[in-house]
Simulated scan of single mutants.
Amino acid sequence: MSVKGIGTRSASPRGRAGNAVRTPAGVERPSLAPIEESPSFKHKAYTALKNAIVAMDIYHSRDEIRLDERKLAQDFGISRTPVREAMAQLESEGFVRSVPRRGIYVVRKTRQEVIEMITAWAALESMAARLITQAATDDEIEGLREMFAAFIDGELRAHLDEYSDANIEFHQTIIRLSKNSVLIDLAANLFTHMRMIRRTTIGEKDRADRSIKDHMAIIEALEARDTKRAEQLVRDHALGLADHVAKFADYLD
Score class of each variant (00 low, 15 high):
S2G: 07
V3D: 02
V3N: 01
G5N: 03
G5S: 05
S10M: 12
A11Q: 10
S12E: 06
R16M: 07
R16Q: 11
N19I: 00
A20V: 01
A20Y: 05
V21E: 04
V21R: 15
T23H: 10
P24I: 11
A25D: 12
G26N: 04
E28M: 15
A33Q: 06
A33V: 03
I35E: 14
E37M: 14
E37F: 12
E37T: 02
K44H: 10
A45K: 08
Y46K: 14
A48M: 11
A48P: 13
L49K: 11
I53R: 01
A55C: 01
D57N: 15
Y59V: 06
H60C: 09
D63H: 14
I65Y: 07
L67Q: 01
D68A: 04
K71R: 14
A73T: 05
F76G: 06
G77K: 05
G77R: 06
S79T: 15
R80K: 14
M87T: 12
M87Q: 08
Q89C: 04
E93D: 13
G94P: 11
V96A: 00
I104S: 00
Y105M: 02
V107T: 11
V107E: 07
R108S: 06
K109H: 10
R111T: 06
R111N: 06
I115V: 11
M117Y: 12
I118W: 02
I118R: 04
I118A: 03
W121L: 09
A123D: 11
E125K: 06
E125T: 09
E125S: 14
M127A: 08
M127V: 10
A129W: 12
R130I: 04
I132P: 01
T133C: 15
Q134E: 12
Q134S: 11
A135H: 14
A136V: 07
T137H: 08
D139G: 07
E140Y: 07
I141R: 04
I141C: 04
I141M: 09
E142D: 13
R145M: 05
R145Y: 03
M147T: 02
D153R: 15
R157W: 02
R157G: 04
A158K: 15
A158G: 13
D161T: 15
S164Q: 10
I168D: 08
I168P: 00
I168L: 13
F170T: 05
F170V: 02
R176T: 07
S178W: 12
K179Q: 10
N180W: 11
V182I: 09
D185T: 03
A187V: 02
A187C: 01
A188V: 05
F191W: 09
F191K: 05
T192C: 02
T192E: 08
T192D: 07
H193N: 01
I197A: 00
T201G: 06
I202P: 00
G203E: 00
R207K: 13
A208I: 00
R210P: 02
R210T: 04
K213I: 03
K213H: 09
M216T: 11
A217Y: 03
A217F: 02
A217R: 15
E220C: 05
R225Y: 02
T227K: 09
E231N: 07
L233G: 04
L233R: 11
V234Y: 05
R235T: 06
L241H: 11
A242C: 02
D243N: 10
A246K: 07
A246I: 01
A249E: 06
D250Y: 11
L252T: 10
